[in-house]
Simulated assay, not measured.
Amino acid sequence: MAFGADTTTDEVIAGIDLRGKQALVTGASTGLGEETARALASAGAAVTLAVRDKAKGEAAAERIRKVTGNQGIDVAQVELSVPDSVRACAKTWLAGHGPLHLLVNNAGVMACPLTRTAEGWEMQFATNHLGHFLLTNLLAPALKAGAPGRIVNLSSAGHRFADVNFVDPHFNHRDYDKWSSYGQSKTANVLFSVELTRRLAPYGITANAVHPGGIQTELGRHLTDSDIEALMARVKTNAGSGEFKFKTIPAGAATSVWAATSPELEGRGGLYLEDCHVGELKSGPAASSGYFAYATDPASAARLWALSEATLGETFDLG
């Protein structure tokens, strides 16, 4: 069947057998993350829910066990904006598990007020990119042991709001704008997929970035009514003649599940995916779909990797 914007996770996962596979999904206690984990579990995968709130994660795990009959669901606690928490999570997970076949970096924050981590990093860049950068690299040995494997990085059409500002990514010397901040973090998610694929493809591991579509989830918990009005005005302007529609959570999570499991994507990485298909290169402020060229630029992807290593004070050799 042809997949599109209204395709659901159950339609994507139909006929897919993930028995014997291990997956890890961040931000899986609610919303898109929980639905992604449920779909993977329904196909037989063992799934770790990596979450901030352990109690909420355990509740989600129990819901998934109940609806899928799959008892191979466990929970790991991680605070992505805290490097020591990410390191502890990865260390514990590696000690208790074998190979990792599917990693879905789903968690994120959106348009929050200016907040800084203990290190002084801007929160959206720290959570949406740096935390997942660190976690993925720390889990790389398990991914290589489980190859062929896939990494899915949740990006957004919001990447079109801003490129990565390599001079001042943390807004130390420029006025903070929550949408520019969100945009650069989502661009970083795409660039990370490009460089990950370059480094890991020789081992049979690919990474792709996903735009899930517009979904009303806890991601928007920081938005005021005026924020939502402004966002919708921007979306409608960008949509041109197209009509914007919110997706259901099963439809929103479908592209993540498609990225993780579709035979069509075997061996393909560094792509921007939306509505269960590969997005197209677009230009201009009125682009209603697709990606901007700066989000997949190989030189920027390599530069972001170097910036991320320097920020974290750690070098990763995936060879």
Rank of each mutant, 00 (worst) to 15 (best):
S81P: 04
L32I: 14
I249C: 00
I64K: 07
F244H: 14
L191T: 01
G290H: 07
K91A: 15
T26D: 00
T206N: 05
R63P: 09
K247M: 07
A251I: 02
A253D: 02
E309R: 09
A95W: 06
F246H: 07
A157V: 15
S85P: 07
H211T: 11
N106F: 01
R303D: 07
G252Y: 04
E264C: 03
G319Q: 10
S180Q: 11
A251S: 15
L281K: 14
R116E: 08
A299Q: 14
S42W: 06
P141T: 12
G146F: 10
R116L: 13
E195G: 03
I151G: 01
A260Y: 02
L32T: 04
Y203H: 15
A126S: 14
A59N: 07
H222P: 01
V194F: 09
A39H: 07
D297I: 14
A306R: 15
A76S: 14
R268P: 08
M232L: 12
N189M: 12
A59P: 08
Y294S: 09
A90W: 09
F192Q: 05
M232A: 07
D225V: 14
C112A: 14
H129V: 07
T197F: 12
A61H: 13
Y291K: 03
G69E: 02
V164G: 01
S289K: 09
A157S: 15
K186L: 10
Y291A: 05
V67E: 08
Q124S: 13
G31F: 05
W93M: 06
G31E: 07
W258F: 11
R198V: 06
L130E: 01
I64M: 12
P212F: 05
A5Y: 11
W121L: 10
P83F: 00
E122P: 04
Q22N: 11
T48V: 12
